[in-house]
């Protein structure tokens, strides 16, 4: 019995080890290529272990007025500001929808949910942002369209509903104003759920290539993901304005591409081990619907 159990356990673990390798190996190959000499990649292709270790790719993409550093700055700004405003607006919105004394909460909640059912589609959205709000080619267009998401408002509203009425009532008796109660009492009680929602929003902003692809033409406002997408087919985006420099020399194109990608995933992969439990918890939050 014991033997059979451990044997099946062995197979279960084997399956997961193989699958985990599938999840992780592509990232390792990426890392390896970024640290390989261009010549060696050219001759023997990509490999899991750098055959001819070299830092050329990183030197190449980080030197001078590199578009990558700029794109990093833009992406970090968009992620931080976007996540912060998303949390502030959504949590206030959700809290007002969670309060039973607010008479129109159900009508407004329906307006929020209806956004999940029907959308005007891409073209009217594009025209709104570019022609009506005139946000095209500004950094705001990367932030503004995603400040509220229906799903997150519903998640937060459902969480706020679970806060015992007696706590809020007692604050009211102590003379606390409604907004003060929200700020000093409700928010601290909700930090776990706010942190989880915030993490997913931050990952969304970090990973967003689509908005920049559609609404950014000014290369100074490229985000990391959009820069990454652009250089896949045209490495010239990486060179900034240094057309004259070392035109003849062998440029580490292939490895520079991979190095850019390493820099783009770096923050997510490095922080993931510390944050993974919030992500795992957060998914089950989302599974609870209106």
């Amino acid at each position: 019995m014991m033997n059979r159990l451990s044997l099946s356990n062995f197979f279960v673990n084997l399956i997961f080890i193989v699958y985990s390798v599938i999840c992780v190996v592509p990232l390792l190959i990426l890392l390896s290529v970024s640290f390989t000499n261009e010549q060696s990649v050219f001759q023997s292709g990509y490999s899991l272990i750098p055959q001819d270790f070299s830092l050329d790719a990183y030197k190449y993409i980080l030197m001078g007025n590199s578009p990558i550093i700029r794109a990093y700055g833009i992406t970090i700004f968009v992620t931080l500001v976007g996540t912060l405003f998303h949390l502030v607006i959504s949590s206030m919105f959700a809290y007002s929808l969670s309060r039973p004394e607010v008479k129109y909460r159900n009508i407004v909640s329906f307006l929020v949910i209806f956004c999940l059912l029907f959308s005007g589609g891409l073209v009217p959205w594009y025209i709104l942002l570019s022609k009506v709000l005139h946000l095209k080619d500004t950094i705001f267009v990367l932030i503004v369209p995603y400040l509220v998401s229906s799903v997150n408002v519903m998640i937060l509203r459902n969480f706020f509903r679970t806060i015992p009425e007696s706590i809020i009532e007692s604050a009211r008796i102590d003379g606390s104003g409604e907004f003060n109660t929200f700020l000093k009492l409700v928010i601290p009680l909700s930090t776990p759920v706010l942190a989880t929602v915030g993490l997913f929003v931050a990952v969304f902003y970090w990973n967003d290539w689509f908005t920049a692809a559609l609404l950014i033409e000014n290369s100074k406002l490229y985000t990391l993901q959009f820069l990454l997408q652009s250089i896949m087919n045209n490495i010239a985006f990486l060179q900034g304005n240094s057309l004259t420099v070392k035109a003849a020399a062998m440029q580490p194109d292939e490895t520079a591409r991979m190095a850019t990608c390493v820099l783009a995933v770096g923050p997510i992969v490095i922080t993931y081990p510390f944050l993974q439990k919030y992500f795992v918890k957060g998914l089950t939050l989302g599974a609870v619907k209106a």
Binding site: I89, S90, M92, F93, A94, Y95, S96, L97, R99, E101, V102, V108, L111, V112, C115, F118, S119, G120, G121, P124, W125, I127, L128, V132, L133, V144, P145, L147, V148, S150, V153, G177, E178, F179, F182
Partner: peptide
């Protein structure tokens, strides 16, 4: 107070979701 807290989010969904409809 509650409606003031609701306002930014409500305005947002009206502009970003309902206008394009």
């Amino acid at each position: 107070t509650f409606y003031a807290m609701m306002l930014p989010g409500l305005l947002f969904i009206i502009v970003i979701y309902y206008l394009p409809m």
